[in-house]
Write a protein that binds this DNA or RNA. Structure first.
Lengths: 216, 216
DNA sequence: GCTAGATTCAAGCGTACGTTTCAAACGCTT
DNA sequence: AAGCGTTTGAAACGTACGCTTGAATCTAGC
């Protein structure tokens, strides 16, 4: 299909990883991609829309994979609830998989992207996290609540948010953590194991079942 | 003391909170502060240094408060280890306190700032998190290891990193979470309680005591 | 082989940026 | 009140930005 469009997307991603999102200009992208400046506005309309296209290209398959894993777990669990550990892995492992797919040139890309999404979440780029992640969070939140009257959907989703934040930390400190001892991707999946082990008991813990308008 | 310098710092902080860090220009700052453009470069040297001054003004007291609380806990614990919950609170409560001190106009400021620090951590602004947070992390990490041969300093610090990431999530989603039911700051400290409760068992969990160059 | 649409190109538009300049005003000490 | 370092003022510097323009080139369909 259109090679120019993809070349632009690839180049943009590469530059985001290399020099950060805010520091990447349209001109730098065109230089990296070997295309003309007008091509970006022709194919994407604006820098902002290009940016969103870069995100969506990665986020959509990521969330599809998450949901696929969740459905598989729910099928296996029948009427019962899914184990927290399996739930967490279904939610987090695809992130590491994506990270490995992105290749070695791009260490802090996903982490920076998550951080950038946080910053932009209530600003010009209108609520991207909302639009692209809310459904997945809700599905996983609902699965976490199942068979647990002590845990409300709100609280389950907040706990998932903790996982997101902690995962962001793992991704963004990847450069620091991968010292000399182990290969980077191995270290990352090891770190994911430790992260899941860390988060699991918190997910097991009793919730408050706050009815809206609750205690002081 | 110098009112111009402080007016600039205050105005910068306000604008960061209101429109984001990347979107805040020197000209906007001078307009907000009611000072001349040259004043910024006279007092701070460059935009980058102003930026760092804004950070340091908040980070330094924050970390002092954290360490003060930690020392108090260690004194009370004598030779024994500090309870994970108390340790977490000593680490996280000052963040909420700072958030409340910042006032109501500035909801996502701290969260965005944390996210921004993440993004910039390995770029132009050379390792700000390293410079300003590594000592505190190390002190808390050491306290978490105490009397726990299963938990290495590295692993303890990584667990603290999870707490940082999750706390960032709490701060940045403050606007969403504080719906109509409760006042914003109340909701925040309630959310902190839930966060600490969530994190605590993970801190209790056994570590791996990885000796450097450990197992596959 | 021609025509119509889709795509690429070189060039430049206006604007906003961070920073600099240099003279004027201030606040001290003597 | 003179002198001098510190601080502020108005103006502009050069640069880089996102984006547009209008012609050139490609690619089908007939």
């Amino acid at each position: 299909m259109s090679t120019t469009k993809e070349r632009i997307l690839d180049a943009t991603e590469r530059l985001f990883a290399r020099q950060g999102i805010g520091a990447t200009s349209v001109r730098a992208i065109t230089a990296e991609a070997g295309v003309n400046t007008a091509a970006i506005h022709y194919h994407f309309g604006s820098k902002q829309e290009l940016l969103e296209a870069v995100l969506v290209r990665r986020i959509a398959p990521l969330n599809q994979e998450r949901l696929k894993r969740l459905e598989r777990l729910e099928l296996a669990a029948g009427d019962g609830p899914v184990a927290p550990r399996a739930l967490l892995e279904a939610f987090l492992v695809p992130v590491v998989a994506l990270r490995e797919e992105l290749g070695e040139e791009v260490p802090p890309f996903l982490g920076s992207l998550m951080a950038w999404l946080r910053i932009e979440s209530e600003r010009s780029t209108e609520a991207i996290p909302r639009r692209y992640f809310e459904d997945v969070m809700r599905r996983f939140g609902a699965a976490a609540c199942k068979g647990r009257p002590d845990l409300s959907l709100d609280e389950a989703m907040e706990r998932l948010g903790y996982a997101v934040g902690a995962m962001g930390h793992v991704l963004v400190t990847e450069g620091f953590a991968a010292r000399a001892d182990v290969a980077a991707t191995t270290a990352l999946s090891e770190r994911l194991d430790r992260l899941v082990a860390f988060l699991e008991p918190g997910f097991f813990a009793r919730g408050e079942q706050r009815s809206p308008g609750g205690a002081s």
